[in-house]
Design a protein around this nucleic acid. Structure first.
Lengths: 113, 113
DNA sequence: CGGTATCCGAAAAGATACTG
DNA sequence: CAGTATCTTTTCGGATACCG
């Protein structure tokens, strides 16, 4: 906490998770390798295109690993890399917060997404 | 963690922090009340307009409180509400991640913002 | 099924100038 | 100093159609 936020490194995590789908997809990958179809079902409300884009982005950052199997029909699995797993702590802290305060917040603010 | 991500409440925290500035501003408010000018200096790279918009948004969510003093020149201070403080844990977890892995990540990815 | 290519609209964010 | 008002640019995410 002694770092200035102006230092880009101190803000890296916020950049990585500072969009709608990166943290959600990363969170959904918590329980092990997942196929895109599974991810879409578990996450809900994400289009195939946006999911693919998100996974590509995370792959680029070396947070997620893509493994394709030469089968028909095609099978692809995504999983976290070692670096991606280090993000688990802050992401799950956020998940815990949602579980703890979500109801109260939604009630107070009238949010239902 | 037994909640489906499709449940909007389980994703609330991700929505609140899932944009560029909300988490950064909330993080910058960690050390107590701040004036807009201070925030801009500490954060860096945020325009007055965007900072105001962000603070208004956070105020709307009851995460941040605005206090204006009837002085000249005008003085305004923003601070976290009790609810906003509950978000401190996940946000600081993200800050810690940045401090721990920021350098390695930037080096590996060639990011300098 | 996984992935790509377009096209499109909404929202975010930047720049600038101005008010109390 | 804090905030507002415009205007412009850009990014993001959604919809649809199509390929291997």
């Amino acid at each position: 906490m002694d770092r200035l936020l102006a230092d880009c490194r101190a803000r890296l995590g916020f950049d990585l998770l500072g969009n709608t789908w990166n943290p959600v997809v990363l969170y959904a990958l918590g329980a092990g390798p997942r196929r895109p179809g599974q991810l879409r079902a578990e996450i809900g409300g994400i289009s195939a295109k946006v999911l693919t884009e998100t996974l590509r982005r995370l792959e680029e950052y070396a947070l997620v690993e893509r493994r394709a199997y030469a089968e028909a029909p095609p099978r692809v699995e995504y999983s976290r890399t070692a670096l991606g797993r280090t993000l688990l702590e802050p992401i799950e802290a956020l998940g815990r917060w949602s579980a703890t305060y979500g109801d109260a917040f939604v009630e107070a603010q009238g949010w239902d997404d």
